[in-house]
Design a protein around this nucleic acid. Structure first.
Lengths: 210, 210
DNA sequence: ATTGTCTGGTTGTCTGACAATGCTTCCATG
DNA sequence: CATGGAAGCATTGTCAGACAACCAGACAAT
């Protein structure tokens, strides 16, 4: 049952594959991932597995305790609140830095998101959403901002996957981001800040059922 | 020439030891760190070394390219500017969250820093400085803010080590942080913000010679 | 002087193994 | 029957040794 892996290196290949499977929901939160099992399943050595797991733990996608198998992280409401808490200042910084600019890649991602067929899987929507934010962050040109954002991106994405309900249809999501890009493009830090706040507040901070 | 290592695990022990040696300046920037050499020097297996190196690369203390030895990172003026650029919003967030509180651990670190003998090595001053900031961040109680800050801490510290010159004596450093703690304690976000700005601006942003 | 090749050194990955530790299960006992 | 403890099992942490892939610099040929 060995699944062959081509890309750059065995470690990055395995890392990407596991990340994909976790983010797509194929491997649900709480699932244990024993090193031996992965080693056998993907036909790579255990050290390789360990390295890949370490990378994902670093991203916040997995959690690991000594002498226990790595587990897919459970993202609680508390975690989402905390995530929003730290993301806001970073997004504000981004918006302020980009004031007056239009980022072509971000516009492209937004268009692609809007153009997705109505029955497209939610994970596709999430993927374009992440691409949009990623493009904005990269446009700022700060390597460290990129690093910080990357450290939160996976977890954010994991959380967003199970927020599917609060965005009954994705038009809201598209509209929110159009506002954000417009606000940034217009150079209004105030408007951009408001757009960021609206986006981050959506669903997360609200008590269940709201 | 095997140097024995006690702590928790071999990996964390080696990680801490290397971090200490890099931050103390014992291993200067640009130095290559071949895995074999470290393996032999510390009497641990190469996989253990690789894991430790990966952790330090993640912290920004080392840089690594494929098939090249890990190198101690060179921190340029540009890097310091970038570091300040992302640290400011995080510090602001911290100050705002702590408004009106006094953090005992931070006060303690400040006192210890002030009480250091005049001829104490600069690295000791830096250590207390980092402890102070760390205490503040922890007091906020946001796991993710802690994570983000940790991702920048090592690099910050590395940069601070070579800023020794711009702080001819450490009284300035002590005074700046006393202002910061007072401003937070007084609950004035404005004052805290100003204190953060003053601290971060000190030396970093200025062109060489200033 | 430029280009191509070769060689040494280093990393990427594998196999195989053993010790340390945590969890589980089962038995003996109250 | 319930409870406590001990043995056993599963899994990780670490090690040793090995080979292939690959980069860099030196050297030779044009």
């Amino acid at each position: 049952m060995t699944v062959p892996l081509r890309p750059v290196s065995a470690v990055t290949a395995l890392t990407e594959e596991l990340r994909r499977r976790v983010l797509s929901g194929e491997i649900p939160p709480g699932t244990a991932l024993p090193e031996q099992e992965l080693s056998a399943a993907y036909g790579v050595a255990r050290p390789t597995v360990r390295e890949a797991l370490a990378a994902l733990v670093h991203e916040g996608l997995l959690r690991r305790e000594r002498h226990r198998s790595a587990q897919v992280a459970e993202v609680t409401g508390e975690d989402l609140d905390d995530l929003m808490f730290v993301r806001r200042p970073l997004e504000d910084l981004m918006a302020a830095s980009l004031a007056g600019r239009r980022v072509a890649e971000a516009d492209g991602a937004l268009e692609r998101m809007a153009a997705l067929p109505g029955d497209a899987p939610w994970s596709d929507v999430v993927a374009e959403h992440m691409a949009l934010h990623q493009a904005l962050i990269v446009a700022v040109g700060s390597p460290r901002l990129e690093r910080l954002y990357a450290a939160l991106a996976a977890e954010t994405r994991l959380g967003l996957v199970r927020l599917r309900d609060s965005y009954a249809d994705r038009d809201v999501l598209v509209a929110e981001h159009r506002d954000l890009l417009d606000a940034i493009g217009a150079g209004s830090q105030e408007a951009a800040r408001r757009a960021v706040a609206a986006h981050l507040d959506h669903g997360w901070g609200a008590p269940p059922g709201e």
